[in-house]
């Protein structure tokens, strides 16, 4: 049984303009010890699907359908066995404990008026019920050492503004690791950082995955980051997963025109005279998403059927699946 199984998740938001269908029926699973990349542009629903999983949707957000089974337990609010309050209590218990999250912007995630030690010990006190000050201090030092922060004793007394961006991100990772989570969700963990720091942070995430055997979901829009870390990749577009496969299947045998478009519009500095082929147009409006394939308006191979009906899933291998009428009809 997989560590996490998401089946047909549908999430929408009520707004003044109408219902925004952010996530429109996605299914995927994550095994222990594996890094799964979720790639998509802003507004593709990648972050909101994770917030749905964590029970962190804003007030106007609703999970309309689908099941989410984490570690053998159903955690979607509608199907949870128990009352709303019991669900909230359950989610509070697993958040930061068995599932933890690493956010994009370390400055807005850390509390500016608490020192690093207080913030680092909070999950330990709350989830593990450790009260002994000396023990907490020892654990905090150990956590900072694990994420590669030099002179941890001094750092613990400092406040977030005294640390650089890379250091803050390391502190966030230390907090996420504090309770030895079974699953780590990293939402664009390196987007705000320099490439040199990014390389170090990605190495760190891989190392901690190996140490804890945790499953990792890495949300990103950078295909370079995906290539350097992920075992499997889900490509999201317009609230749907349009293609899923191992990293090699996606990068060398990507079938969906969106996947191919993404790969040909990134700068691969290894390529000799590489001509960028941008994808024309912009992503669909999720207030009124197209009835058929979400990519239809930007796709150069679009056919009549693409406009009318969503493409069925075509299985290309045990791991490689694509939702596209072209593959379904055997045209490419």
């Amino acid at each position: 049984m997989s560590l996490l199984e998401i089946n047909n998740l549908v999430t929408s938001f009520k707004t003044e303009q109408g219902k925004v269908q952010a996530v429109r029926g996605i299914s995927f699973s994550v095994e222990a010890g594996e890094i799964v990349g979720v790639v998509g542009e802003s507004g593709s629903g990648k972050s909101q699907s994770m917030y749905s999983l964590m029970g962190l949707l804003s007030d106007n957000g609703v999970i309309e359908d689908g099941s989410m089974i984490f570690d053998g337990h159903e955690i979607s609010p509608a199907k949870f066995e128990g009352t709303q309050t019991e669900w909230e209590k359950y989610m509070e218990d697993i958040r930061g404990n068995t599932i933890s999250m690493i956010f994009q912007d370390p400055m807005s995630f850390l509390n500016p008026v608490l020192n690093i030690e207080k913030q680092l010990c909070e999950p330990l006190i709350y989830h593990k019920n450790i009260k002994d000050k000396a023990e907490l201090h020892k654990m905090a030092v150990e956590l900072l050492t694990q994420v590669g922060i030099p002179s941890p004793e001094e750092r613990l007394k400092q406040y977030p503004h005294q640390l650089s961006g890379g250091m803050r991100q390391r502190v966030i990772i230390a907090i996420a690791l504090a309770c030895h989570p079974k699953m780590i969700i990293a939402d664009e963990p390196t987007t705000a950082l320099d490439v040199t720091i990014q390389a170090k942070i990605l190495e760190l995430i891989k190392k901690q995955r190996d140490r804890l055997g945790a499953g990792v979901i890495l949300i990103t829009h950078d295909l370079g980051v995906v290539a350097s870390t992920c075992d499997r990749v889900n490509i999201m577009y317009g609230g749907k997963i349009v293609e899923t496969g191992t990293a090699d299947e996606i990068f060398y045998n990507g079938m969906h025109p969106y996947t191919q478009g993404l790969l040909s519009c990134v700068n691969n500095p290894e390529a000799e005279d590489h001509k960028l082929r941008p994808i024309p147009g912009s992503p669909p409006d999720l207030l009124a998403p197209p009835a058929g394939c979400p990519f239809v308006d930007r796709c150069e191979h679009a056919m009549k059927v693409c406009k009318l009906y969503p493409a069925p899933e075509t299985r290309l291998s045990e791991t490689h699946k694509v939702n596209c009428w072209l593959t379904e009809k055997g045209k490419i």
Binding site: V195, T196, Q198, A199, K200, L202, E203, D222, L223, G224, V225, V226, A227, S228, A247, D248, F251, L263, V266, N268, P269, E270
Partner: peptide, 19 residues
Amino acid sequence: LLSAIPIPDPQVMRKRAAL
């Protein structure tokens, strides 16, 4: 700086040494 750029090619990245 160059060795830190992630290249969108999994096979290249697997061979790359740590920064």
